[in-house]
Design a protein around this nucleic acid. Structure first.
Length: 118
DNA sequence: CATCTGACGACCG
DNA sequence: GCGGTCGCCAGAT
């Protein structure tokens, strides 16, 4: 219920791109921080087309329990996202969610968004 | 109402 | 680079 915001945002992550728990938390201004996003995704309702696999831990590390890790990698590879050894390269595939309208600061350029290699 | 249960991340030794 | 601490929240039992 209260995780709706998280699910909505996660659904906007483009195919072939990934973001992190931290990014999602900051975009939504969640008090619980990245942890809250983790809680939300842990309870992701199935069958709603929520691309939970596009959310990674800080540094692009896979952060799902063992039983889902292989599936997540498979889904990502299906979208053209290759793992760079221990983690996904955020410089390559990282995507920043649009933040909730800030006051003064007009969304400065993040060092994140980079042209997709696809 | 009390507890338990998890997909985090910054920081420190 | 690895392991521990700490802040944090909704839902199920």
């Amino acid at each position: 219920m209260s995780w709706e915001g998280v699910y909505r945002l996660v659904k906007t992550i483009p195919r072939g791109r990934v973001t992190t728990y931290g990014e999602v938390a900051r975009a939504l201004r969640l008090r619980g921080g990245a942890r809250a996003v983790g809680y939300a995704l842990a309870a992701t309702p199935r069958g709603r087309g929520i691309p939970w696999h596009r959310v990674l831990g800080a540094g692009g590390k896979i952060r799902v329990p063992e039983r889902y890790a292989a599936l997540q990698l498979k889904l990502l590879e299906t979208e053209g996202v290759r793992t760079d050894g221990a983690a996904i390269d955020l410089k390559r595939y990282g995507w920043s969610p649009a933040r909730k309208s800030q006051k003064g600061k007009p969304a400065r350029k993040r060092p994140f968004a980079r042209p997709s290699p696809l």
